[in-house]
Computed example of a mutant assay.
Amino acid sequence: MRRSLLSTIACSALVLVTLVMEREAFADDARSAGELFRSGEEAYAERRFRDAASAFDEANRKAPRGATAYAAGVSWHEAGEPARAADALELALETGGLDDESRVDARTRLARISPLLATMTVDGPPGARVTLAHMTDAAVPLKIHLAPGRHVAKRADVAGAPSIKIVVAAGESARVVLSDVSIVEDDPPPPSSFTRTAGWVGIGAAGVFSASAVVLGLATLKARDDFSDSGNTDASMRDRALSFRTMTNVAWAAAAASGLGGITLLVLSPRASAAKVQLGATELRCTIPFL
């Protein structure tokens, strides 16, 4: 009985400590969000709209509020970033809590800039995250506004995952599906430095033998001409020409053998390959039906 009572007290104390810690963390986030919001207001008053929008975005991540998202949307709009503005204004309307004037202004701005943008929906397996345009390491499913043109979507939670190239036009809606991908480590290749070095040495030797063959070939032609000038009667000149011809043939043969051997060693030498991307059973796919 006493042990049961002690266990109950311990569990209650643990729950209480957890609640206190969560409350303190929430209070810290709220305090930090308030400071960021004030920084955003100062930046907006100084017409530093991009700095203001970034501060409001960060404040909204720490303590989501419709008014904060609205402030970010207006700032992005004034900064000339319509896609980011549309995302923030849409989030503000979904979050709620706006006064009538802010709600009307958010809808008016959205109606003005939405036709100039494309809307992209990104889906994927549970836990998947994506980097696309101004969204970095964002959880899916995700809806994002994009400027017309080319974009690249890539899974942020899988290193080495292939990218998806996207082309969108103003007023269009599109959808991208990220399938399961995994990284498969290759078996480490055997050491190949000696084989590749020997291959390059063989190619270098082929160059040396080729140059020697050219020099000997020219000497052969001169010796032949000298023998012809003697009326084809000077035996020593004839032997000299034959000797140069033999050395020329040997040099060409050595060049061919060295070059062929070097190329063979380079081709057969294994090369390192750290990793490869393997697609899952459903493979990576991108479907973009324009509505």
Rank of each mutant, 00 (worst) to 15 (best):
I166N: 05
I166V: 15
V152Q: 12
S114D: 12
V176T: 08
V176K: 02
A174P: 00
R61T: 12
Y70E: 04
V181W: 06
L93V: 13
D100W: 06
E81Y: 08
T95D: 03
F56K: 01
E94T: 13
V184L: 09
R112M: 14
A69Q: 02
L110E: 03
S75I: 08
S102N: 08
A79P: 05
I183R: 11
S163E: 13
A52H: 00
I166F: 07
A63F: 12
A106I: 02
P162S: 14
G127I: 08
D123I: 11
R84A: 12
A63W: 11
L117E: 05
P148R: 04
L93N: 02
D187S: 14
L89G: 04
A133E: 05
T131D: 04
R175N: 11
D187Q: 14
T68F: 12
A111D: 11
L110M: 03
P64D: 05
R155Y: 06
T121R: 13
R65H: 14
V168T: 06
V176F: 01
S179Q: 10
F56M: 08
A138V: 07
A147T: 15
A88H: 01
R103L: 07
D51W: 04
N60I: 00
A156W: 08
G149S: 08
D105S: 14
K165G: 12
V152T: 15
V122T: 06
E81I: 09
E101K: 15
V176D: 01
R112L: 15
V158G: 08
A139L: 03
D57Y: 14
P82C: 09
P162C: 14
L146A: 06
V177Y: 03
S114T: 15
A53T: 06
L89V: 08
V152P: 04
I164A: 09
S102W: 04
D51L: 11
Y70T: 07
R155I: 14
I183A: 07
L98D: 02
T95E: 09
L132F: 11
A106F: 02
W76C: 10
E58M: 15
V130W: 01
D137L: 09
V167Y: 09
L116T: 12
K143Q: 15
I183M: 08
V181T: 09
R175Y: 09
P115M: 06
L98M: 04
G127S: 05
E94N: 13
D123Y: 13
P126C: 00
E172T: 10
A111P: 11
I144W: 02
A170R: 02
V177S: 00
N60R: 10
A67W: 12
H151V: 14
A133W: 03
A170S: 10
G96I: 10
P188A: 14
V176W: 02
R107N: 12
A52D: 02
R150F: 02
S102K: 05
R107Q: 13
P115Q: 03
F49T: 00
A71V: 09
E90K: 13
A88V: 07
G149E: 03
A53I: 07
